[in-house]
Design a protein around this nucleic acid. Sequence first.
DNA 1: TAGATTGTTAATCGATTAACAATC
DNA 2: TAGATTGTTAATCGATTAACAATC
Lengths: 223, 223
Amino acid sequence: MKRIKVSNNVIRRMPRYLRKLDDLSAAGVERISSGELGRQMGLTPSQIRQDFSCFGEFGQQGYGYNVVALRGEIAKILGMDRSYSAVLVGVGNIGRALMENFCFEQYGFTLKGAFDINPELIGQEVHGVTVHNFSELEPVLSQLQPDVAVLCVPKSMANSIANEVAKAGVPAIWNFTNIELQFEEEAPIIENIHFSDSLLTLGYYLAESMDEAAARAARSNHA
Amino acid sequence: MKRIKVSNNVIRRMPRYLRKLDDLSAAGVERISSGELGRQMGLTPSQIRQDFSCFGEFGQQGYGYNVVALRGEIAKILGMDRSYSAVLVGVGNIGRALMENFCFEQYGFTLKGAFDINPELIGQEVHGVTVHNFSELEPVLSQLQPDVAVLCVPKSMANSIANEVAKAGVPAIWNFTNIELQFEEEAPIIENIHFSDSLLTLGYYLAESMDEAAARAARSNHA
DNA sequence: TAGATTGTTAATCGATTAACAATC
DNA sequence: TAGATTGTTAATCGATTAACAATC
């Protein structure tokens, strides 16, 4: 697999391709062309072929792409075959929801442990994963050597905990706290889930569509 | 406020500006230049000035931007002053987590109701919000006329429910289900929170960084 | 074989960055 | 006033789209 500088835009389309290919596969579709895939996903065939060509040659002239094979290539690109290990910090509402409902395994991640300060949780298992005392963060991290820390702690503690985690050598953070993490030393890989940013974006487009509707109404009143 | 075609990239930076300005404001900073803001956010001063200029003239030559005033302008751009109404469909783990922990009000949204099929939940209040029987979706929607439906239902039902919601005239959907929603009629405004896409993106960058580290190690072994 | 469709190179489009006159 | 910094116009850069030879 080629690994040259691939733009973030391309990377972020990969999970969408994966999802689409899973759907096609489940529907029994065996092969698909960039034209048809583009039609179904709202992308141009050119873009699809360019995207895939960043990583290799997965198609066949005159035929298109084999759905299952292409799915496998994309899964590999996204590291789904690597069995990453993860820990979760902060077993509050969102943390617990992730532990109980999010299928980490499906994406190649195994949750190896969790941390909290709540004495009622410490030592318990949540969905088969042990909750450690947060005060044991450093030694447990150096024992588990996780690839990712899922950060679900309250806002006020998020940055200092993120720095602790990074200092312990965890190479990536999946950040569910609503802040921009800042690091003293070299920053790990960060992937943010910012609920509020998402809702505010929705708020923008709602405002826009309401303003447009109002403008249309005003125009037709004048007529 | 100008409202011309503003690119999605610009829109998605707006919530980040808002967050930063809140931080600055809390830290007692009164004014800031595009240069300093850029340094703190990892953006170029040019980009910041371009971004703001899509919506108006919020600064002052030789001075910069007043933090509180700029914050207010951005809040307005994002519709935070409009008091949108919302309903939540699917009071499962993630839905409940949102109802109990996500501060809708802070972003200008009020949760007016929720829906579920679980008889133990129907009629109850969760965090002050009534859970309606899902079978009452249509009449309750037409009564509440919400601006947004927060979609937290299982994957298998997501698309048909999204279509029902759209058909009932709800103009926007905040989608927490891990699928690409498809609409028969005109599509509402959609904003997706795709956990799995985010984690897979992280997986890509982890794979990349591991491959780089391995390549470095191989090179130094040869030396 | 002929038609279809790829992978890639070239052209276009849009977004970011730089430059600078205006002005607080 | 002089220095600082904006808003905007022009230049650059990167991403998307189009075109097409290669080939299954």
